[in-house]
Simulated assay, not measured.
Amino acid sequence: MKGTVELLSSGMYTTIQDGGRFGYSKYGVPKSGAMDLRSFFLANAILNNDENSAVIEWTVVPPVLKFLGDTIVSITGVICDPYLNDVRCKMNSQIKIVNGDVLKFKNVRNGVYGYVGIFSGFLSEFILGSRSQYNQITKFSRLFRNDMITYNSVSRFSTSNSLISNTVFWEELDSLHVYKGPEFDMLSDMQKDVLLHHDFTISDIRNRMAISLEESLENDLSSMLSSPVLPGTVQLTPSGRLIVLMRDCQTTGGYPRILQLTKESINVIAQKRTGDQIGFTIVD
Rank of each mutant, 00 (worst) to 15 (best):
S10W: 11
F122V: 05
I95T: 07
C249N: 06
V60Y: 12
N44R: 00
D276M: 10
N49W: 00
V244F: 07
L259K: 02
N49D: 03
A270K: 04
Y113K: 11
E215D: 10
S188H: 00
K180Y: 09
M91S: 09
L163N: 11
M186W: 15
S226H: 00
R156M: 15
C80F: 14
I202A: 03
R145E: 14
Q250D: 14
G254Q: 03
K104S: 13
N44A: 02
S175G: 12
S10M: 13
E264K: 15
L195P: 09
R257W: 10
G253K: 02
I16H: 06
C80K: 04
G23K: 04
I46K: 02
N166W: 04
M246G: 01
T262C: 11
Y151A: 04
M246R: 06
G253P: 05
L163M: 03
L196W: 08
M35G: 03
G275M: 00
K272G: 01
E57W: 08
F22H: 03
N52S: 03
E218M: 07
T150Q: 13
F67C: 01
S226C: 01
N152W: 10
G275I: 02
Q191G: 06
E57T: 03
V268R: 02
V194E: 14
V55W: 03
V61E: 15
F105C: 05
L47H: 04
S120M: 05
V229F: 08
I211N: 13
L236C: 05
M186V: 15
C249H: 14
L259C: 08
S165Y: 08
K180S: 11
F67D: 02
F200G: 05
V178P: 11
D248Q: 13
E171G: 04
T14I: 06
D189I: 04
V283G: 14
G28T: 03
I266L: 09
P63Y: 14
I278S: 05
V178W: 10
N146R: 13
T167V: 14
R257P: 10
L196Q: 08
F280Y: 01
V244K: 14
E172G: 11
S216Q: 12
G33F: 07
D81C: 10
L176N: 13
S74P: 05
G20D: 02
S223R: 09
G275R: 02
V116Y: 03
S74C: 10
H198T: 14
I266F: 10
L217M: 07
S25T: 11
K90H: 13
C89I: 14
T71I: 02
D189E: 09
F140P: 12
V78D: 05
V87G: 08
T237E: 02
N166Q: 11
M186T: 10
D220F: 15
T14D: 06
G129S: 05
I75N: 04
G121V: 06
S130L: 10
L65R: 06
